[in-house]
Amino acid sequence: MPRKFVLQINGSERTTTTDDDRPLLDVLREDFQLTGAKYGCGEGACGACTVLVGGQPTRSCITRVADAEGQSIQTIEGLATEGRLHAVQQAFLDHQAMQCGYCVPGHIMTAVAFTQQNPGASREQIVAAMSEHLCRCCNYPNLLAAVTSAVARP
C-alpha cells in the first residue's frame, strides 16, 4: 500500500506518497524531476543510476525507496554549490570525460565518494572502482584521467 515518505534529498526534505518497493531511481526522476540519475539496465550492472545514499555510491535502480528513508540522498543536481562545480565535476570537465554523457552523472557520483574515501589512491584502485560503471562510448581514457586528477587534488 502506498504511504507517505519524507526523504532527505540534496539537503532538503522532500515528501512523496508511494510503495515501499518502488525503485529509488523512479522516485527521484518521476516524483522530483531529478533526472540526472539515469536508467541504464535496471539490475545495478551499469552504474548510470548511481547516487549517494548515506554517503555511499548506491545503484538507485535496485534500491527500494523504503531503504533510502531516513538517510541522506545526494544526486548530481546537489553537487555544485552556488554555481561552483564540485572538484570532481571540474575534473570531468577539464578532461572532457564525456561523449554522449548519459553515464557521466553516475560516474561522477561514484568518483565523489571514492576520492573522499581514498585520497592518494593508486591507478589500480581507481580502475577497480570505476570499472563498476559502463560507458558505451568507451571514453574510459578520459574518465580515468578525470578521476586520477580528482584523486590527486580532492
Partner: peptide, 18 residues
Amino acid sequence: PHVRGRDTVTGRVLYPSD
C-alpha cells in the same frame, strides 16, 4: 571542448528519457 560540457557534469542535459 564539448559545448554542453558544463551541463553534462551537472546533470542538466535533458536526454529523450528526461
